[in-house]
Amino acid sequence: MSSRTTTSAASVEEVTVTGEPKLRGKLRFRAVVRKVFANLYWLTETEEEEIDETDQQKILALKRKRGKKGTLSLQDVQKKLAEVTYLHCYGPGRVVVKQEGLPTGIYFMLSGKAGITQSAIDPVSNEPVIIPAGDLEPGDVFGEISLIHDIPRTATVTTYRTCELLHIEKKDFDKVIEETIKPDWDMCKYAMARFPYFDEWSSVALHECCMLSRIKTYEPNETILACGARTNYVFFVLKGLCQIIQHLNIIVKETKKDHQRCRLQTFGTGIQPGEIGQTHFMQICILSELATFGLGENLTDRRIIALTPVECLLCPRYWIMQNNKANLWVRIKRFVDRRLPSTQQVFHSFVENRRWRHYSRDLVIDSLRNRYIPNDTSISDVPYSIRISEYYVDR
Rank of each mutant, 00 (worst) to 15 (best):
389 S>G: 08
296 G>E: 02
320 I>P: 04
148 I>M: 09
78 Q>Y: 12
82 A>K: 14
315 C>F: 00
215 I>T: 07
65 K>W: 14
107 Y>L: 01
393 V>T: 10
394 D>M: 09
260 Q>D: 14
256 K>R: 05
284 I>C: 08
36 V>M: 13
168 I>E: 02
269 T>W: 00
44 T>L: 13
72 L>W: 09
53 E>M: 07
81 L>H: 07
181 I>R: 04
186 D>G: 01
341 P>S: 00
239 K>R: 15
321 M>E: 11
359 Y>N: 14
299 L>T: 06
341 P>F: 00
72 L>E: 10
122 D>C: 01
341 P>N: 00
12 V>H: 13
78 Q>A: 10
12 V>G: 10
65 K>I: 05
60 L>H: 14
115 G>L: 04
151 I>K: 10
365 I>V: 11
122 D>W: 02
121 I>C: 11
9 A>S: 15
378 S>G: 12
135 D>Q: 15
318 Y>F: 07
391 Y>W: 03
168 I>L: 05
303 R>I: 02
389 S>W: 07
204 V>N: 02
107 Y>P: 05
375 N>V: 14
202 S>Q: 02
386 I>K: 10
332 I>K: 11
232 N>Y: 07
19 G>M: 02
20 E>I: 06
69 K>E: 08
286 I>L: 05
334 R>A: 14
392 Y>V: 07
340 L>E: 01
